[in-house]
Amino acid sequence: MHSATSIAIEIMRAHALRNTNQVSLIALCALAAAISSGAFAQANSSNNTPLTIKDWTAAGSGCRARMSQSGDVQLTGMRTTNTTNGSKLVILNFSLPNYQLVSPPQNPATSITFAKECALRVVADPLGHARIKSIAARTPVVFSKDEKTGLTMQYILKLDGHIVAQSLSEQDAGRAIRNQEDKVVLSGLPVREENEISANSCGSRQMLGFDYTFIAARSKISDSAQVGLSENKQLELAVELEPCRS
């Protein structure tokens, strides 16, 4: 199945499950129309991307890299698909092969409660008289923990400094979990002010963000916890661009 299609389908599922994401039905209908028409499945990838990546940074206790400086996060792909509603979908693939939370060996210097974070920031210019209509992110994770360990996994999707979607998964102490997989899908809409003039949202530089936070709360130093990305250890960021009407 085409990756964009799978993203969109899962976006739909996520929206169906959550009504608190501040997502309008209009954007969902647009995505649904694109899916039902088979536009994503038959979409033609293009190198003439309507989005230019000016810079990106991955930073935190669990990762470090930037566009101009190699590290343990890489931008591995970028492709564009057309949708039937006149918008374009740009999908960015980031690889995070080393980002994980692992309970370290018995080390008295390590805290009982500890975290690993990775925050990704992407600076992008929509080309032409276009603006971001919606954004989405998909990342597969796998986690394990001992019975007396609690795990908190938080994912935040940001656009222009605003949190547009977030997901919190809390696995309380009380039962052991082994290699449980979870596909995290977040989507949201830009926060637009009333009467916002087009210059603010059309053709202007945008900052996309995705934050991972994994926290392990152990009862003793020998308790174990492990969280990491599964499958191809990738984060997919999908940006839907629409032409400005003004």
């Binding site: 939370l101 409660t113 500890f114 975290a115 974070e117 400094g161 926290i215």
Partner: peptide, 20 residues
Amino acid sequence: LQANVDGSDVHFGLDSSLER
């Protein structure tokens, strides 16, 4: 007190809207 959690980061964001 451990602020932040060992390994957790502090994230600050500023969004300023520019008008003509």
